[in-house]
Design a protein around this nucleic acid. Structure first.
Lengths: 195, 195
DNA sequence: GTCTATAAGACGATAGAC
DNA sequence: GTCTATCGTCTTATAGAC
């Protein structure tokens, strides 16, 4: 009875990641036990250790994969050379991507403190890579005279913080659709950095 | 040996709250044990239960006290009737208060999910009370023709999210002092809601 | 008001059967 | 690849001594 009929690691692996992401986002990394994750997947706790050496590695793998996907998606989508159009594209992309990956976004902001120093540095570096892409847009727009901000780095962080806020209140089927939200935040972001 | 010489509840109580706030903010509510809190204070774990019925009540008391203090401080400080001046005062107040109470702010955004439904509703209600004060400013400024935002509620949340971002990067002794940070964020907030 | 001691159980992780 | 069983430790919370 040891091996369950039809058991396959290429199915169980993704299901473990999905269950861990979901439970960590909902209850917090420290509050979720390996037994809970295993129960959600339908295996015993010991079986999880075929897929990860330990619990922290499960978390950092989720966070790294998320950041890699975020950066790759933006790099694949990046539009025209005009800084204003690029900023608009960034605002709409960031909101849409965050809403499509709400659990992973939540984790990548809330659970960094559960990482050891070296894992923390990896995720922090990826986040900075992403921020630098927005900062470059703002700098190009200032050089072209379209934007004027008192501090480019702080404007970068301010815009990202503002956009991240959407995930704290958005509910599917609410008053505003995603396109309308993009319009509203683009209006505010555009004016905030306007010359 | 039972009672320690000089032990007094009016000293131990605040020290327990401070230790809990500090450890919860640093490691997360679920990751901190009652034994750790007791060790930080210098008592045994059982003694904590003279001051709180359980761990969750410790957390909700910290969060409620923080929100009460935040709202009372703003209500005591609120300045002129002019909406533009009031918005500037709000921006500077919010940044300063958040930096002065960084651990409690962190908790009140990160640990709400560790509350039961009734405790959660209490803290959510206080947060909405505070948000409503900013929303009223934005509405008054629109009525007077000074501001123009596509959606007043979302502008409220966007500004608060932007300002909250300061706590994620600010370090004492960094490149910018608090006054300079207030200037920079006031410039961006003002333009974001400008007519 | 604080201690020691303990109840009753959950935790992360591993060993060995199949 | 997954199971059962288990190790050693930690957990929240309580009881009773002083």
């Amino acid at each position: 009875m040891a091996r369950k009929p039809g058991s396959r690691s290429d199915i169980t692996g993704p299901r473990i990641r999905a269950a861990a992401r979901h439970l960590f986002a909902r209850h917090g990394f420290a509050a979720v036990s390996m037994r809970q994750i295993a129960a959600e997947v339908g295996v015993q706790a010991g079986a999880l250790y075929l897929y990860t050496p330990d619990k922290e590695t499960m978390l950092v793998d989720l966070l790294r994969d998320h950041m890699d996907e975020l950066i790759a998606a933006w790099d694949a989508a990046e539009p025209s050379a005009d800084p204003v159009e690029r900023l608009e594209a960034f605002v709409r992309f960031h909101i849409a991507f965050n809403l499509d990956h709400a659990e992973a976004v939540f984790l990548s902001y809330m659970e960094l403190r559960n990482l050891g120093p070296e894992n923390f540095a990896v995720i922090e570096g990826l986040r900075r890579d992403y921020e630098n892409r927005l900062e470059a847009i703002l700098r190009a727009g200032q050089d072209a005279g379209h934007f004027a901000v008192p501090d480019t780095k702080l404007a970068t962080l301010a815009i990202i913080a503002m956009l991240n806020g959407v995930n704290t209140w958005y509910r599917e089927g609410g008053r505003l659709g995603r396109a309308a939200i993009g319009d509203i935040y683009w209006d505010m972001a555009r004016k905030a950095v306007a010359a």
